[in-house]
Design a protein around this nucleic acid. Sequence first.
DNA 1: ACTAGCCCCTGGGAGC
DNA 2: TGCTCCCAGGGGCTAG
Length: 301
Amino acid sequence: MPELPEVQTIVNDLNKKILGRKIVGVWLNTLKIIKKPKAADLEKQIKGLRIKAVKRRGKNILIYLEKCQMLNVGCQTFLLLIHQKLTGHLLMGKWKIEKGRVKSLLKGPLEEKVNNYIHLIFYLDNGWQMALSDLRKFAKVLFGLKEEIEKLPDLAEIGPEPLDKSFNFLIFQSAISNKKGRIKQVLMDQKVIAGIGNIYSDEILWQAKIHPFIPANKLKINQLKALYSAMRQILKKALKLRGTSISDFRDAFGKPGRYAEIRKIYQREGEKCPRCKTIVKRVKMGGRSAHFCPRCQRNLR
DNA sequence: ACTAGCCCCTGGGAGC
DNA sequence: TGCTCCCAGGGGCTAG
């Protein structure tokens, strides 16, 4: 499931491939993924626009596009927002549609079943294509005028970016320390901090030696400090390794990330804690599973 | 305003 | 081998 490091990896990849390109066509076979505008109107509205920037906000991929009346005058800016949710993959490649099936024209990592789940393709003016593959069809796509999309709660209500320079310890502390919920759920709350999901919340809490069930407002100052520094360290490290491919994350070229190899706790139930050799536990929490070491992270309440 | 719980979807694993 | 059942999980939505 793509979290901040995975989404940033995709965004970095896209920046190398699609900047300055014009969208010349759209193919889609699953209407429900397009939340805005009506799926039938997407191609009409986005065709001819030029890609000016690719950014990330939380787990959202933001593609800014422009339409100008004449040479760079009278320009309007549009925004294409893509959220990959659990199993979405944004991929660069070349495909052909044959009897309703999507087939890759390129050799390499993309020749996987990921092609079977491509539901949306943007055709670019240099022959390349940007495709959204999503096994579970949970992904969402929003498109419209920049101002209009930025106003939507999908973007407007997202909390601060954990790796921003301005997100210092004091801001972190004020965001976290008044929340009554369990710390793991608070870390994953996109309105509190942007971009952290199930994998990295487990890894961060393990490194900070904090039990996932502790109410956020019960954390002591030294725990908050450990949490803050674990958060920054782990997200940066994961970014460097191009994300975690524990389930099925792939970068924009179909390659897995390497953080899974060095992960300490996530999906290691029954294995030994790398720090103290205690058997790692998994517990259910609000429909998600939390992995933790019952000894290193025993500081419940 | 807040929170807990259901729901979306489909492949894969467990159980028989 | 093959069928059925259950589970994963981000976040939107609804009910309390």
